[in-house]
Nucleic acid binder design. Structure first.
Lengths: 146, 146
DNA sequence: CCTATTATGGATATAGTTATCCAGATATCC
DNA sequence: GGATATCTGGATAACTATATCCATAATAGG
């Protein structure tokens, strides 16, 4: 349902939100989030172009978030790499004029609107910071070691 | 967000729900719903395998719905061709054990669950029958002719 | 039984997404 | 200013989704 690219972008942003002390390099993020490094570099590029992350080159360079994590939503990240395509006009190319969708497509678009809404209300801060009981991204299930 | 295939499948099913007198052939459905005929044939095959449509070969053959349209949901159709992939295990392949998703993936899966819910509640009958004010699928905008 | 019609499904082509590779640009540090 | 680290971005490959083509199987009707 979501593209792989969106998944990768979210992992990167959540990881960055949890490591704000210094910039993180592509390869640091890649190994932490288990994303192919060279592909991640494209994803980070897109996140940069959308103003979600900031890049610094050279030694001690890397990526940082441009905003605090409570000002970034899941929707922002998804839209940066793989925008939600709302249905604005009849996909059949009939002469339905714009706003007037048929019941089916109106209903499908309602679903899309709902998804947007849900993910607009999900701030990245929800997944970062000290208050998170389990580790960011998937927990390593420390319970198993006890 | 939804695949092209799912879109095609929904158009076909809605069209069938609105034309129940006799079986419709692939090419009839294709031209009515503006879907590439040879591709539609694969889509209808998948719908048949999922028990949503019934096929009859030979003269006067074609496709019919196996059930009344109020017993088929948008979710049924989507799942027949391009199933909603819920997130059950950690996509990072870490040793998180099944049920225990990290906050991010739990939230994403919540979104997916919500989509399922929304489309499970959308019966195809909603888009078929005499009670529909505008034509099924996109209206031909008859207003423009007045 | 024969013919016409229609679905079934395999083979292949095209396009889009995901992934890899590497040369270049830019910044930092000394 | 030189050396090194790092992002930027173009070129290409692998994979998946979409689309097309056509031979075959099954059915209806005569």
């Amino acid at each position: 349902m979501f593209s792989q690219t969106a998944e990768y972008a979210l992992r990167a942003v959540v990881w960055l939100a949890n490591h704000t002390e210094a910039p993180l390099t592509t390869s640091q993020i890649a190994s932490a989030t288990q994303v192919p490094p060279d592909y991640l570099s494209k994803v980070l590029l897109a996140l940069g172009r959308s103003g979600i992350v900031n890049a610094r080159r050279g030694k001690n360079g890397g990526f940082t978030l441009t905003k605090p994590s409570d000002e970034i939503t899941i929707l922002d990240v998804i839209n940066a790499v793989d925008p939600v395509q709302r249905i604005h006009t009849c996909p059949l190319g009939l002469r339905g004029h714009g706003a007037q969708l048929c019941p089916l497509h109106r209903r499908l678009d309602d679903g899309l609107r709902q998804i947007e809404e849900t993910f607009r209300n999900a701030k990245i801060s929800e997944f970062s910071g000290e208050h998170i009981p389990v580790a960011p991204l998937c927990p390593r299930n420390e319970a198993a070691h006890a």
